[in-house]
C-alpha cells in the first residue's frame, strides 16, 4: 500500500456516514494492502445485471421446471437461497468492514451477517465460516487478488441461484462451488460471481451485479416466517 493509500485509510478512520436515524457507524481504517471497499455502504442500482448463457444438465432443467414460486421460495422462511439471490435483491444496503484477518459483510436483506476469514488461497483446506440459519449459503473463505476481494464458498445445502423473474428456480445443489469477486470502481461495487455446479449446469453460471455507493445506513430487517409467508387473503 502506498503512502497516499495509507493516508486515505487513516482519514477514513474518522469518517462517519450520514444516517437514516439508525446508529451511525465509525468506519475503521482499511488495513494496509487491501482495496477500500468499506468507506461507503452499498445499495443495488449500480448498473446492469448480467447473466451469461449457461447450459443446464438434464437434471438441472428438471429441477428448474419443477420450481413452484408459490411454495418453494426460501424467502417465505426468511432464508437466503444463494449468494446471488441475496445480491439480486433491490433497495437493500450492504455494509463491508475490512480487517487484517477477516472481512465482514452485513446484508440488510434478512439481516445476514457474514464474517469471512481471510486465508491463503493456496491452502488445501482453508478455514471457512458459515452463516447460521442459512444453510444454502455454505462455508466461505476469502482473500484479496490485487484490488479484488475473492470469496470462495462450498458445502452448501440445496437452494436456488435466483428466485426472481424468468430465471426463478435456477437450482443449486450440494456440489455448488461459488466464487464471488468484489471490486470497486469509484462509486460502483461490482460483484462478479461464478457458480460451478455439475449436478445442475454443464457450463459455469456467471453473473455480474452492480451496487452503488450510498449514504444510507443498514436498517434492521426483522423478517419473520409468519409474516414473510403471508401471500394470500384469509
Amino acid at each position: 500500500m502506498n503512502v497516499t493509500a495509507v493516508a486515505r485509510s487513516l482519514a477514513l478512520a474518522t469518517l462517519v456516514l450520514s444516517t437514516d436515524a439508525s446508529a451511525q457507524r465509525v468506519i475503521p481504517p482499511v488495513p494496509a494492502g487491501q482495496p477500500d471497499l468499506s468507506s461507503k455502504n452499498w445499495i443495488a442500482g449500480g448498473g446492469r445485471t448480467e447473466f451469461n448463457d449457461f447450459v443446464y444438465t438434464a437434471d438441472g432443467k428438471k429441477r428448474f421446471d419443477a420450481y413452484d414460486f408459490k411454495k418453494d421460495d426460501p424467502a417465505y422462511g426468511c432464508i437466503g437461497a444463494s449468494w446471488t439471490r441475496i445480491y439480486l435483491n433491490p433497495n437493500v444496503v450492504i455494509q463491508i468492514t475490512q480487517k487484517v484477518d477477516s472481512v465482514r459483510l452485513q446484508y440488510e436483506w434478512m439481516d445476514i451477517d457474514r464474517l469471512v476469514p481471510l486465508v491463503d488461497p493456496t491452502s488445501a483446506n482453508p478455514r471457512r465460516s458459515n452463516v447460521p440459519g442459512h444453510p444454502a449459503l455454505g462455508y466461505s473463505a476469502a482473500w484479496y487478488d490485487g484490488d479484488t476481494l475473492v470469496i470462495d464458498t462450498i458445502d452448501m445445502e440445496p437452494g436456488y441461484v435466483t428466485t426472481m423473474v424468468e430465471r426463478a428456480g435456477m437450482p443449486q445443489s450440494r456440489r455448488m462451488h461459488t466464487v464471488e469477486r468484489l471490486s470497486r470502481q469509484g462509486n460502483v461495487l461490482t460483484i462478479a460471481t461464478t457458480h460451478l455446479d455439475p449436478a445442475n449446469y454443464r457450463t459455469p453460471v456467471e453473473t455480474v451485479i452492480r451496487y452503488q455507493a450510498t449514504d444510507w445506513e443498514l436498517m434492521k430487517y426483522g423478517c419473520t416466517p409468519e409474516e414473510a409467508a403471508v401471500v394470500a387473503p384469509r
Binding site: F69, T163, V165
Partner: peptide, 11 residues
C-alpha cells in the same frame, strides 16, 4: 421493475 423476495413479475 426491480424485483425481490417472492419477485414481483413472478407473483
Amino acid at each position: 421493475r426491480p424485483t425481490a423476495h417472492h419477485s414481483v413479475p413472478v407473483n
